[in-house]
């Protein structure tokens, strides 16, 4: 393998990995506050892409993205307020089934609004054939946007969770819900906030990846499965671990193409997931004690 080919694979892997990681972070935020896996996470990504595409002619690219993120956050909050908050007996399994239902509902609604065809945002810099050369390998500038967005998101999130009082409240809620309630934290609002946050992150991801992957009403599901794999791989609830696991999976997928047929790419992801579940059920980077909440 030449150095050029190596770097080309590496960047392809980083691209896949960053996309998976962003989706996985969304899973983790909601998991932390509620203990559930929100299977509508992929739909947030799709909505972000679709809304920004619709708003593009009116607002221009930067504002369309901001508006798409805000609208998706409101949508996430509404989902929680309307369907999750008022559950009399909020069992984990029940809530998971509800999120599956909501994901189907959102997908069908998107089909009616935007139709069955694929759309995409324009490339943020240059166009479809622009590429930058890094160490002999050529990659699209959009890849740098995806990697950059993923990096910024992780940094901002960790600052938010470590230093702001709302962030600390959310962490308290994640650590021990009963204790958090006793300390006067409104845990219900924290759950709503976590839905808004992960909807916003999903939407932003949907916007930055749209030029590369295109957006269609049904492409949230595929992303959700990969994101879920990565979240489990890294250890549920740990956003930093999700980035590590995402990049790892992406890079393995990219390099696997060199040795085994491309058709087996998804089999690799699933085999890896099974292997991890057998050997380290708490994830690659998770601590043994954390385990799975209530599962």
């Amino acid at each position: 393998m030449t150095l050029e080919l190596f770097i080309q694979y590496l960047f392809a892997g980083i691209t896949y990995g960053s996309i998976y990681a962003i989706v996985a972070i969304g899973f983790n935020i909601i998991y932390n506050t509620t203990g559930i896996i929100n299977f509508a996470q992929g739909e947030f990504v799709m909505l972000g892409g679709m809304i920004s595409i619709s708003l593009l002619p009116v607002l221009g690219l930067p504002l369309a993205i901001v508006a798409a993120v805000v609208i998706t956050m409101i949508f996430g909050a509404l989902l929680e307020i309307c369907f999750i908050r008022w559950l009399v007996n909020p069992g984990v399994l029940r809530m998971i089934i509800i999120t599956i239902g909501l994901s189907i509902l959102t997908r069908e609604a998107a089909l009616h609004i935007w139709g069955e065809s694929i759309h995409s945002l324009p490339y943020f810099v240059g166009n479809e054939i622009t590429s930058v050369t890094i160490a002999g390998a050529r990659i699209s500038p959009q890849v740098l946007w995806v990697v950059g967005a993923c990096g910024c998101m992780v940094i901002i999130l960790s600052i938010f969770f470590q230093t702001t009082s709302v962030g600390r409240d959310m962490r308290a809620c994640a650590a021990n819900r009963t204790a958090a309630t006793l300390c006067g934290i409104n845990t219900r609002n924290m759950v709503t906030l976590s839905f808004m946050l992960s909807a916003g992150i999903g939407a932003l991801a949907g916007c930055v990846v749209s030029p590369i992957t295109s957006t269609a009403y049904d492409n949230g599901t595929g992303l959700a499965i990969k994101g879920f794999t990565v979240a489990i791989l890294g250890g549920l609830g740990n956003s930093m671990a999700a980035v590590g696991a995402g990049l790892l999976l992406g890079i393995i997928e990219a390099f696997s193409v060199h040795i085994i047929p491309l058709a087996f790419q998804d089999a690799i992801a699933i085999s890896l997931l099974l292997l991890i579940l057998f050997i380290r059920p708490h994830g690659l980077f998770g601590s043994r004690s954390a385990g799975l909440k209530e599962f």
């Binding site: 896949y16 990219a254 390099f255 193409v257 060199h258």
Partner: peptide, 17 residues
């Protein structure tokens, strides 16, 4: 000759190959 998944998001790795 390569076969890829119909939901593939990015094929830059196989193109490089």
């Amino acid at each position: 000759a390569e076969v890829y998944d119909k939901d593939a998001n990015d094929l830059s790795a196989v193109v490089a190959k």
